[in-house]
């Protein structure tokens, strides 16, 4: 008469445990289109293996007969993955990666509430993919920085050229990064924090 079944839920591993003294958690969001490197960036900075909160699979016609005449609607897999960085004994930072396309904006519910700010990760070969995201963040009043992920063979546009194309105000930082690199990814977060720090200094 016991629920030994619940034992099969794997908890965090020993090295992933947070100290009991942690009192506050804060979060930032990494937004970007498919394949732009969000998960890579989250994985690079996270001290735990990235986790996902949602995921669905497509079960395209898995032996299901078609007598019902219903077109099988498959769901795109949506992964909102996240990582964690222990800032201090009292403070922990969570980094969430979420798709930027409009059709995934439903995922933003609950995600941006309370978020310190956002990083918009862009691929300079497909700059226009990020336009909707930037507009959406401006609409929501979420402070953000733009990071261009350096892909092999991607054009190296001067920052001011990108700023003009993205029509961003001068104060919004645009940084280059290599999402595979821990330092580079950390620097992106640093850029966001410094920007937020500067914003907080301004008179409201």
């Amino acid at each position: 008469m016991d629920f030994s079944g619940s034992e099969s839920v794997p908890g965090p591993q020993e090295e992933d445990l947070l100290p009991a003294s942690v009192a506050t958690a804060v979060k930032v969001v990494i937004v970007g289109g498919f394949g732009v490197g969000k998960t890579t960036l989250v994985g690079s900075v996270s001290e735990i293996r990235p986790l996902t909160t949602e995921e669905t699979m497509t079960q395209a016609g898995a032996g299901v007969d078609d007598t019902a005449g219903i077109e099988r609607k498959s769901f795109t897999t949506v992964a909102m993955d996240f990582g964690r960085i222990s800032i201090s004994d009292e403070l922990v930072l969570y980094v969430f990666g979420t798709p930027g396309q409009e059709r995934f904006w439903f995922l933003w519910n609950g995600l941006f509430e309370g978020a310190l700010g956002a990083v918009v990760l862009v691929d300079t070969r497909r700059l226009e993919v990020s336009f909707d995201v930037l507009g959406r963040l401006e609409d929501r009043g979420v402070p953000f920085v733009v990071a261009t992920n350096a892909f092999p063979g991607s054009p190296d546009h001067p920052t001011e050229e990108l700023r003009a194309a993205l029509d961003l105000p001068a104060e919004v930082p645009i940084v280059r990064c290599d999402a595979r690199s821990r330092e580079s990814s950390r620097d992106v977060l640093m850029a966001l924090m410094r920007y937020l720090y500067d914003l907080s200094a301004q008179p409201v």
Binding site: G35, G37, T39, G43, P50, T52, E55, T77, A79, R180
Partner: peptide, 10 residues
């Protein structure tokens, strides 16, 4: 989801 630094999981 892939462990660290490989590719997008989407």
């Amino acid at each position: 989801p892939l462990p660290r630094a490989t590719a997008e999981s989407e």
